[in-house]
């Protein structure tokens, strides 16, 4: 029994929407980014620090209470993505509804960082999912995340939400649908066990 879980997408009417409506739409999207923290390593601690009272990114409209990827607009990948973890990153990204944004927070998720020559580290999360904003640092200070969010918000404000432009932004990832079978499949067994 597999139910298809089509990815929630931007409707066709979006492209035809008049400019004022788009403006309002982008304004709303910009300041209500429900964030899904993909906390992996050191940077996750700085992400938590950014959500605490001292830096408090709720001021900028970033809401860290997304119950899961299905309700999130923004994914912050903070920390080293290992090859073992990579399928999970991809799978959770696939479950997020459109329009969705990704911030790569810190050197490790930008390009592998200090561990780029390791045998088991993915050389940047952008090999798995399209990234909108790269925040440099190891780990970046919380203010750097806030600045990254501001950059993202500027980008959202200028966004033309059409399927065409969306496809351009997402590149080869556009139009890919995750089926229920895919998001609930068991982990792939290592080769020794399958023989």
């Amino acid at each position: 029994m597999t139910t298809d879980l089509p990815m929630p997408r931007v409707g066709a009417g979006q492209a035809a929407a008049p400019k004022p409506m788009r403006l309002v739409l982008n304004w709303g999207r910009r300041y209500s980014l429900w964030v899904f923290n993909f906390g992996l390593a050191c940077c996750a601690i700085e992400f938590i620090a950014a959500s605490m009272a001292r830096h408090d990114f709720i001021r900028l409209g970033v809401i860290p209470f997304a119950p899961g990827p299905r309700q999130a607009d923004l994914m912050v990948v903070s920390g080293t993505v290992t090859d073992k973890m990579a399928p999970a990153v991809r799978r959770l990204y696939d479950q997020m509804p459109e329009p969705k944004y990704v911030i790569s927070f810190g050197a490790c998720s930008n390009s592998g960082g200090p561990y780029w020559d390791s045998y088991c580290v993915t050389k940047g999360v952008d090999q798995l999912i399209p990234v909108d904003v790269y925040v440099p640092g190891c780990p970046p200070r919380p203010e750097a995340l806030l600045q990254g969010i501001l950059v993202l918000q500027q980008q959202i404000a200028q966004e033309k939400l059409q399927t065409k432009s969306l496809r351009g932004r997402l590149g080869p990832y556009a139009g890919r649908r995750a089926s229920a079978a895919e998001v609930s499949r068991p982990l792939v067994a290592p080769p020794e066990q399958t023989t």
């Binding site: 930008n110 960082g113 940047g124 904003v133 790269y134 440099p136 190891c138 600045q147």
Partner: peptide, 29 residues
């Protein structure tokens, strides 16, 4: 995107060509 911000390059530079700056606002798209 690779730098681990350890500052070894600044330490070893024999001619003081590299410096730390506290600036952090350079995230990119």
């Amino acid at each position: 995107s690779l730098c681990m911000y350890c500052g070894i390059c600044i330490e070893v530079c024999p001619f003081d060509a590299l410096f730390w700056s506290p600036e952090f606002e350079y995230s990119t798209t």
